[in-house]
Amino acid sequence: MAPRIELKTSPHIKQADSVERIMRTVVLALLPVCAFSVYQFGLSALALMATTTLTCVLTEQLFNRLSGRPSTIGDFSAVITGLLLALTLPPAFPLWMAAVSAFVAIALGKALFGGLGYNPFNPALLGRAFAAAAFPEAASTWTQAGLPERFSELLPSTLAMPFMRPESVDAYTTATPLAEWKFEGGIATDTWALFTGMTPGSAGETSALLILVCGLFLIARNAMNWRVPVAVLGSAALTAGGFYLLDPGHFPSPLFVLFSGGLMLGAFFMASDMSSSPVTPAGIWIYGALIGFLAVIIRFFGGLPEGIMYAILLGNAAVPLIERIAQPRLYGLRRGRSG
């Protein structure tokens, strides 16, 4: 009878970091953005976040059950998807629509591909794209920030009945600074207001300053690849700056481009989704630059005021191609012998 021999293999020490800690850090970094959104848009924003997050977690659990896998809700990634989806939606978005979009985000955006790490697209953005396609009107109806009764009552459209179109209540609705520029041809919002965020917009995209601070926290905690936001924002600023120099009367300034709409949120929290972005540093530079460029091109020349969502989804789609050309440089590789 031979004794059991256990040979452990090297390395025998490990860095203490884990997937759970990374995801918890991302949730932590999102909380101030969520809190500011509630401060701006009140109970409706809170209800929206609760709905999407709960739906995402339940959907994740449902698919774990269906596929017979151990529960993965402890890794917090479904919570992140839920929060991010809520932050990209208009604050008065009907809750039933939000729940459907959240279900789609996890079911089609993540579970279908095999769960965390296998999703080729950012699940939250896939849910957001679904919302834009399925509920075009509600997904582009914005509310003023800082309404006086926001902490005592919900916005009327929040509780719209399922499969009923919410009534449009003109008293509350308004145009975002981007839509104003796009469709009315002028910029009425000053850059400082954009930077600090007291403007209309999606629930979580309005304060560039807050997103910047939370993003830097993520980078400091090594929970995000710093190259992503640098590449996206740098490329967007360069692209926008080029057009601005060509025709300052027609194109907005690069600062307006950076701080308006979802560019900051997208650059820090969406494009940086690890599963749907390249793993190599060179790949990330290309990927980020592509997203920044596309976002500005869509804003300037597309039919929509905002382009970051589609820019990131296109960037996600390009990842396999980017990784084909952006592998690390091998130590000691003889010239002309590359694989």
Binding site: V19, G114, G115, M274, P278, V279, T280, P281, L330, Y331
Partner: peptide
Amino acid sequence: KPCIRCGRCVEVCPVG
């Protein structure tokens, strides 16, 4: 657990 494609391994591999 599944690879989340964080890319840390790529950033430390001394051989590239």
